[in-house]
Write a protein that binds this DNA or RNA. Sequence first.
DNA 1: CTCCCGATAT
DNA 2: ATATCAGGAG
Length: 220
Amino acid sequence: MLNNTQIRYCLDQMGEMFPDAHCELIHSNPFELIIAVSLSAQCTDALVNKVTKELFKKYKTPEDYLRVPLEELQTDIRSIGLYRNKAKNIQSLCRMILDDYNGELPKDRDELTKLPGVGRKTANVVVSVAFDVPAIAVDTHVERVSKRLGICRWKDSVLEVEKTLMKRIPKDEWSVTHHRLIFFGRYHCKAQNPQCPSCPLLEICREGKKRMKGSAVSHG
DNA sequence: CTCCCGATAT
DNA sequence: ATATCAGGAG
């Protein structure tokens, strides 16, 4: 586990690597954002953006998603994957927004979690990005990077990772750090091919040093 | 724990 | 061929 000085070093280095880290899911309002994040499960942002470009032209309001048969919405999002669950969730979510929330997306994290297909990670993204509430959404990148670096423990659950990050990062840096962790994981500390040799965090990264030792170039 | 699932990178 | 992608629900 990294100490507080090493954590500070990580945050500062990531700030230099990705000073403009931001939400890459294209959206123009909170409703579009929660649709985009719901679609993004087990799928790249790039592909979500490709689909929502056309989707958001056809569907502007919760009523629009409910006007079409389920099969039509499935077809419109098919290339995303997991499309049956996602299409059903979107229609149920729209029904609930109209029936239980007077047509307006709730701004509370725990209320958002009551919506079908919206778990803690999706709700954290929405409150953080759309409503400017400090939050750390733990996705696959945040979890992997936090564990590799030693910001949290290897055995931590997703929820435990989030709590550890909230404990170890100043609250006014939660949202920006969250996006830097994602950029760092997506573009540098990648799942399959991590860029350890050029990593400014290598000297404090337990996993990175282990990888470098295992792939030494020298033969003698 | 399993299932949902197509697109893309390796 | 296989791993991975801004997860969530049963």
